[in-house]
Each structure stands twice: as structure tokens, then as C-alpha cells.
Simulated scan of single mutants.
Amino acid sequence: MRGPVVIFGTGLLGTSIGLGLSHRGLEVLLSDPSPSALSVAVDIGAGRPLHEQPGVWPELVVVAAPPDVCARVVADALERFPAAVVVDVSSVKGAILRELQELSAKNHLDLSRYVGTHPMAGRERAGAVSARGELFNAMPWVICPHQGSGQGAVQVAQNLGLDLGAVLSRFSPEEHDDAVALVSHLPQMMSSLVAARLQEAAPHALSLAGNGLRDVTRIAASDAGMWVPIMAANAEPIVTILHQLHEDLIKLIGTLDAPAAPGASLAMAKVISAGNAGQARIPGKHGGPAQPYAWLSVLVDDEPGQIAQLLTEIGEIGVNLEDLRLDHSSGRNAGIVEISVLPAKLEPLIEELTVRGWKVLQ
């Protein structure tokens, strides 16, 4: 890809794209309605202010604006830069395309130069200060061309994702919105709803919280200002899934209202079993099929360098870590490192760590 590249929006995604492209040596020009947000993005090296470069002719314009204003920013970019491909990186595609088509009916926009995209990467914290140039490395980047997208424009959109180290996939706008409603938007709402139940919880109850609660509520820390327009723009597929979930909840409530009734135990077991089956379908390491890893826990002192030493010794033993979680031991100045490995490596690793003096918990 050649520069310059213009980026409208200096939040987490826009600034991360700017950092990634700047690190590759491309000229990046930035614009944002907020002077302070723009200033932060410039200060951390994501690019230079667009208003300081009049008469620029970019090959690519990236619109990193919220869904409720994205279509208008895309339309303005198509008119302002008549030779540029314009992509957006919003997490909703159908609503933006429909609004663009309505605007085009009035203003005759060249939508052949527009391609919707969605990098499936992010963090719980928004804003330029959270941006990272390597944010997209090995992460999915969905290309969502519409029927009128030109092949050249699609290629430029693909090159953007590839240049930033992403793994490309291709969906129609409708397929994309249905998919993210299930795998992204629903988890956010469920996490927020569960975390909301904790507001009035007694402190002694919260002291029992472990990794299960932390895992479920991790993304509840997300920014409401970012999520409200996403939920509104993709409401239809979200509502469809919520109705299905509502039916499941009603059935479960009915079962738990009479847990000793005939068939209740089987009904509860089916809920857990269905969850097992669904969780097993989530792609595993490197995007391949999920594998049944074995887990062990190691008690470590809450001191600097302990976890680093443990990981170093596991490497010396010659075992590859598949996953890692960290928990705290209640009532002790210690932590618990939970490690997953291939099942065949479990017993040899336990034996060797024990010989080396580590406290292995099973």
C-alpha cells in the first residue's frame, strides 16, 4: 500500500491503525472532531494532523467513527477525495450501508469506492491512549463488500488488513451483523447484566469471587459511549437472539422453581450439557478446532519474578503452554497460576516441577 492514508477518528481503532501504518513507513494524516483526542494520537506517533496538509490526495481513507455517524463521515470522504478508496472499521455493517445507499440516492455517491470492514480486535478501554500498533496482529479482520464495491477497492481494503498483520475473512454485511450479534454483542450485554447484579452485593460475598466471575464480567468494564450506538445499530439480530435466550431462561426458571420435581435434574443437566457442546465449538489455538487441554495449578509466592521464573522453568523442561490464567489464593500472600498443556505432557510436567520445588495443586 502507498500513502498517504487519511484516518477519520482517533479513538482506539483509528489510532491503532495509524500507529501500525506509521511503523511501516506510510504517511498517515489524522482528523477528529475532538482536538484533544487528535492531539494525543499525534503525540504518540499515529500520524500528522490532516488540516496541516491541504490538497492531499490519499489512496485510502479509513473511517473509524461510531456507527451512528459513520455513514455521514464516509459520504463526506467519498465526495472530498474522489480518487480514494474509503473503508470504515465500524462493528456494524448493514445499517451503515443502508444509510449510505439513502444518501447516495440524493447525492449520487460513488459507492464502488466504499468497502465496509471490521477488525475484530479491541480492548476494554477506549481512546487513543489505549492504542497499540500491533493490536491487529493475528486477529480476524472481516471484509464486507456490498454488491457495488469495485474489485480494486476490495483489494485495497484487504491490503490494509494484511499490512497490519490481521487474518482476513469475507462476509456479506448481513452475515457479518448476524455473526457479531452472537459472538460479540450478546457476550457484552450478558457480561454487563451479570456485573450489574454485583452493585448491591455485600462485601463479604464479593470476597469469595474467583476466576469464574472475573472471566464472565471482564468485558463489563467496556465503555458505554462506544457500545450504545453499536447496540442500537444492530438491534434486530440482537433482539432475535435475546428472545431465544429469554425462552431458555423461562424454562430454566421453571425447572429451578421445582428442583425436586420429576425430570428436573435431567433438565438442569441438559442446560450444562448444551453449554458444553456450544463452548466446544469455539475455535481453539491458531483458529483450529478446540482441543481438550489438561490443566494444572501451581502455587507461587506473591513476590516479583516468581511467575517469570515458573514460565522459564517450564520452557526449560520443554513443555509448550497452551493457555495460562492467574488467580489469587484467598487468605494467603500467594497466587495460583493455572496452566494448560497437551494431555500427554501433564504428568511429566507435574513430576519435573515437583522435583524443582514448585507446589503443584491438583
Rank of each mutant, 00 (worst) to 15 (best):
L321V: 07
S191Y: 06
P283M: 06
A258C: 09
V228G: 00
R214W: 04
V300D: 05
E59V: 08
V63N: 07
I314Y: 03
L29P: 04
G3P: 09
P187E: 08
P283C: 06
G55K: 08
T117M: 09
A294C: 12
V360T: 08
V87T: 12
L26G: 05
V180N: 03
K106D: 10
T10F: 05
E338T: 07
I143T: 01
A261H: 04
L38K: 03
L361W: 04
G165V: 11
S192P: 03
S39Y: 00
I44Y: 03
V85G: 00
A105P: 02
R123I: 09
E200I: 03
V360K: 08
G127D: 10
H51W: 12
A71W: 07
W358L: 03
L162S: 03
A196Q: 11
S130E: 13
I317Q: 07
Q306S: 14
G11E: 02
V337I: 14
N211L: 15
P348G: 10
L324V: 15
L242P: 00
P343W: 02
I238H: 02
V129C: 08
L342G: 07
V216M: 14
L38R: 07
M190D: 04
P66Y: 06
P348A: 04
T312D: 11
D163C: 13
H23W: 01
K270Q: 15
L324P: 00
P203V: 01
I350D: 01
A65Q: 11
I238F: 12
L296C: 03
E99Q: 15
V216S: 09
M189W: 06
L135T: 06
A37S: 15
L38P: 00
A280S: 13
P262C: 01
S104G: 06
W295A: 14
V216H: 06
Q53P: 00
I350Y: 01
V183F: 11
G161C: 12
D223Y: 06
L30M: 08
L186M: 15
A258K: 13
L311P: 00
E352F: 08
A269T: 11
L252V: 09
L353H: 06
L245S: 03
A65E: 10
V61T: 05
H146T: 07
A131W: 04
G55L: 09
D32A: 11
Q158L: 08
P304D: 01
A267H: 05
A46K: 01
P187S: 08
G263R: 09
E247F: 05
H176R: 05
Q101R: 15
A153R: 01
N211E: 12
S222R: 09
E236G: 01
T312G: 05
A181Y: 04
P33T: 13
E134Y: 02
V298P: 03
S130G: 05
V5Y: 02
N320M: 12
G225L: 14
D32S: 14
I238Q: 09
L100W: 04
A46D: 01
V28P: 07
V5N: 03
A105R: 14
